[in-house]
């Protein structure tokens, strides 16, 4: 990837709060109502599919790197299983819904895609973007930040590699800058990220 010096934002979710009709939009994307996935996975699918639509893609090229980040993960299912397991075995679907890996599998299934997908937890989303950029191949990345509450959000970026534009890059201080429509390019900047 030595020839790649910048990443173009090909699609993204808006920075605005989650759309009130996000569940209906997810059903429209999937063509059916999701079953037994859990809130965390549904939120992740919604954001990912909205972003691919914005990028004009129906699925991902195989060597795209997918990284989903969160601070709390599938916290509602987690608390449910914690409570259930204090007195008996938990419900199998509750346990499945509490596992972030099931979200990755659901994403793979919904996109009819297989590839390198991972889940990471962080308080520094920019460091994770930089880490993902170092691992990504020629078909780029799909990055998501998903939280169930405080408030619920599912923010995603689709990045594709390109030749660095003749623009001034400035270091990013806040994740929100990446969702500003004025921001169209990213590149590595030390252990962080710069935008143009």
């Amino acid at each position: 990837m030595a020839e790649v010096v910048a990443w173009r934002i090909a699609g993204r979710t808006p920075l605005a709060p989650l759309s009130a009709d996000w569940r209906e939009r997810l059903v429209a994307h999937l063509g059916q109502r999701p079953r037994r996935l859990g809130l965390f996975t549904e939120l992740a699918l919604y954001g990912a599919l909205e972003t691919l639509t914005a990028a004009g893609e129906r699925t991902l090229p195989e060597d795209t790197l997918v990284r989903v980040c969160s601070l709390r993960g599938a916290v509602s299912a987690f608390h449910q299983v914690l409570e259930q397991s204090a007195t008996d075995l938990p419900m199998p679907f509750s346990f499945l819904q509490s596992q972030p890996s099931q979200m990755l599998a659901a994403l793979s299934g919904a996109l009819k895609w297989q590839g390198d997908a991972g889940f990471m937890l962080t308080r520094d989303p920019l460091a994770l973007i930089a880490l993902a950029m170092r691992q990504a191949g020629q078909h780029g990345l799909l990055l998501g930040w998903v939280e169930e509450e405080e408030p619920a959000r599912s923010q995603w970026l689709r990045l594709v590699p390109g030749v660095s534009p003749d623009k001034r890059f400035v270091p990013v201080r806040d994740l929100g800058q990446l969702f500003d429509p004025q921001t169209t390019w990213l590149q590595l900047h030390g252990n962080g990220v710069a935008i143009a």
Partner: peptide, 8 residues
């Protein structure tokens, strides 16, 4: 690494 959602 790969994720295959075909059979989770």
């Amino acid at each position: 690494t790969r994720v295959d959602g075909g059979d989770p």
